[in-house]
Design a protein around this nucleic acid. Structure first.
Lengths: 337, 337
DNA sequence: GGGGCCCGTGACAACGTTGTCGCCCACCGG
DNA sequence: CCGGTGGGCGACAACGTTGTCACGGGCCCC
């Protein structure tokens, strides 16, 4: 910038003014400066600018695995919103490790990101409170965190499972099974709880066969045989996420009788399978978008007033049942075939 | 840092030394400094550090759409490598727009990223040459760019299609069709060219029915009816990517006769469909990993010697044919059923 | 004609680090 | 007792910007 100033025979500050479109520069002078900028190929150093201004115009996102379609859709939505607010997005995968998550967060904090969006690897986040103080807003997404007052954007896991159960019951199913994913995941536990509560509410409490992953294919086949066996055998299964759904679909091929299914999470090609798979769909785009909005609204509030920050908000997004064909030929009136 | 210095009754520079694990500080003094750091919750400002040192320890990645599983896998691989080199990753989606790609690149350059990995929206990139000079290494991935000397990591699109055609021919198919995606994509054009060249080499040049997307379902059904009609009708199709594969699978349902298929791009659930879909698989992880390695090897070379940079390299990754069941019951010996 | 005002511009400090250099002191050898 | 040596530490400048203030000159108004 000092080179540009010399080249255009003006002061450093005048170049700064031109670069920032500040008023108080004669158009003629500004043109000369712009000409010098072009001639020298000058490019403002945003790092120095940020050092001066105290904001980096960037936010950090920690997910479990960017390569996973669910999180990549979420990432895409966050990036879109960030770009709309003229912020850059830095993202990294914690790969399920709380330790790695923490080291990523520290790296982000060292860079002075303006805000953080985190898919927490584990609930406990008290360590984060002193780190961010009330300077760096944090929003948790997909799973809540404890030990810290921060916004969270979640989906209605229990409600989603409830809609699946109700749908199956309406189609004449009386005995259901639930195949959840690894119980160490919060979402897996929530969905299981939703299943239990739904059955209880429907007075069908006797019919709950429940298992939690991870599964080996052979074990899963054996389990399903046991569950479907005899007059009290189940006729339908609710799965806890798309990973389990895929495993179940493989296992079902080795069974003699068909089994009705509602999967949690929609997936591409669900409508191309035979039968097409009915699913509880959650919307990762909406999740990311809401989280980003929550973050930027904190950021705006921070810039505006200097009052105490408002209380932590929690946003719960609904799920949507997409009925395809995997729930059997039973009619709504309950006359089982 | 100056606060820490006061608190520990040492100079600013000594704190810096402790923070950077530099030698020349008495253990006793260092402990006192560390104590003060803890007491005050000090955190080094990486922005200022980078300003001083001239490197940001971050790289930029521009893809077409982070939300797309192919690019998200690529992004994940790049991020993994970057983390291994203690670099942070900034990523953004150009959404197919050359203009948006350019504005993202400029934003990255303003931040002084150490290097760039780009999935180019269009080939022409002469504008980038002066922007990066020989200061910021660039690696193109998935598609090549013109007008600039830079490394590129691609996959063997033509070879992939060739393997598909050869497989179909070996299974007794004599007349084939090719359904490509939008010809404005470089990869779509390459794959089409691969199809034409393969047929030509096999002396089966007479059997090439070719169409390029995008497609409407109804049009696609009509097209397939025409292609399969009569004694000269085709018996197999090669698709140009997974989007087209999905559309084809929908269209095929409305046809009376089965149609053999090799899809370009593998996809989850390909083995759960009936019949399971044979595909030419490309590996986005490897693509991202190779691109990141190429970039960091440039970066290392830059740091090491100050000689002229070496010539641009081009890496072409192979594809893999995954045989499932969608290529008909014909035997390898050619005795058509 | 003099005082006030606004416009265009520049000098200077500051943001939070790190590299360079030099100072002080303890110790050692002659 | 003196000169040299080296370990521990501090002063200062620099990285590339932006915010604050001050200055000179032209204009307007009474």
């Amino acid at each position: 910038m000092v080179d540009v100033a010399k080249h255009a025979h003006v002061s450093l500050k005048t170049v700064s003014r031109v670069v920032n479109d500040e008023p108080g520069v004669r158009p003629e002078t500004a043109d000369r400066v712009r000409e010098s900028i072009r001639a020298l190929g000058f490019r403002r150093n945003d790092g120095a600018r940020q050092l001066r201004q105290g904001r980096t115009s960037s936010i950090g996102l920690v997910v479990e695995d960017i390569g996973n379609p669910f999180y990549s859709a979420l990432t895409g939505a966050v990036e879109r919103v960030a770009r709309g607010h003229e912020h850059l997005l830095m993202s990294a995968s914690a790969e399920g490790s709380a330790e790695r998550e923490r080291s990523i967060v520290e790296a982000f904090l060292d860079r002075r990101v303006d805000g953080l969006i985190i898919v927490p690897a584990e609930a406990e986040h008290a360590w984060l409170t002193p780190e961010v103080g009330d300077r760096t807003p944090v929003v948790f997404v997909d799973r809540p965190a404890t030990g810290i007052a921060a916004d969270a954007v979640l989906i209605d896991n229990r409600g989603g499972v409830r809609s699946a159960v109700e749908h199956l019951v309406a189609h004449g199913h009386r005995r259901l099974g639930f195949l959840g994913d690894d119980g160490s995941f919060w979402t897996a536990r929530e969905r299981r709880a939703g299943f239990e509560a739904s059955l209880h509410n429907l007075g069908a409490a006797e019919g709950g066969n429940i298992a939690m992953g991870p599964y080996e294919l052979d074990d899963l086949v054996a389990l399903l045989r046991a569950w479907t066996d005899g007059p009290d055998g189940i006729s339908a299964v609710v799965t806890g996420n798309n990973r389990v759904t895929a495993q179940l679909l493989h296992a079902v091929r080795q069974l003699d009788s068909p089994l009705s299914l509602v999967g949690f999470d929609d997936f591409e090609y669900a409508d191309l399978l035979d039968p097409p798979v009915t699913v509880v769909s959650q919307n990762p785009d909406a999740l990311g978008e809401q989280a980003a909005h929550a973050l930027f609204s904190r950021l705006d509030a921070q810039a505006g007033s200097d009052g105490r920050p408002s209380a932590a908000r929690q946003i719960v997004l609904p799920t949507r049942l997409i009925v395809r064909g995997s729930t059997g030929r039973h009619d709504t009136d309950g006359s089982a075939s």
